[in-house]
């Protein structure tokens, strides 16, 4: 069972955004990389790209900060946003120290990495072996 994503520090992110594309087509049914659960921050002038990923924290700030108790473990034990309870206040996004949560401005709902029900799409898509899945 995959429990979290990790960044392979020995590999270098090339900034291709394949992970963001794989994530958004899986979760949103369209290519909309700004809605990706993995965020690649690209500094274009020095061509430095860095992935921001959900750490699946044990004492997660996103969960504890949510005023509506909308972030709870799913059937696999992965913290997920309950869309019925989320009111789009954005507190969890500010609370996450890893910049790993985002807001869908159209749906007005927060989103986070749910590890794709166990078959993590971004890991498979990364050509540079930067994203790895940790199995426990």
């Amino acid at each position: 069972m995959i429990t979290k994503l990790k960044v392979n520090k020995k590999a270098q992110c090339v900034g291709c955004r394949q992970c963001e594309l794989a994530c958004s087509i899986f979760h949103e049914g369209e290519f909309s990389p700004w809605l990706s659960r993995v965020v690649i921050q690209r500094n274009e002038i020095i061509k430095l790209s860095k992935p921001y990923i959900c750490q699946q924290c044990k004492n997660a700030k996103c969960q504890s900060s949510c005023p509506n108790n909308a972030i709870n473990p799913d059937k696999n034990g992965i913290l997920a946003v309950n869309l019925e309870l989320c009111d789009g206040c954005g507190i969890c996004i500010k609370a996450c120290p890893f910049r790993a949560m985002g807001m869908d401005n159209i749906k007005q709902k927060a989103y986070k990495c749910d590890l794709c029900n166990g078959e993590v799409k971004c890991v498979k898509a990364c050509p540079a072996n930067v994203l790895i899945a940790e199995e426990v």
Binding site: Q12, V14, G15, C16, L21, K47, L48, S49, P127
Partner: peptide, 9 residues
């Protein structure tokens, strides 16, 4: 370092 164009593997 390496860099990629959009979507390039």
């Amino acid at each position: 370092r390496w860099e990629s164009c959009f979507g390039c593997t």
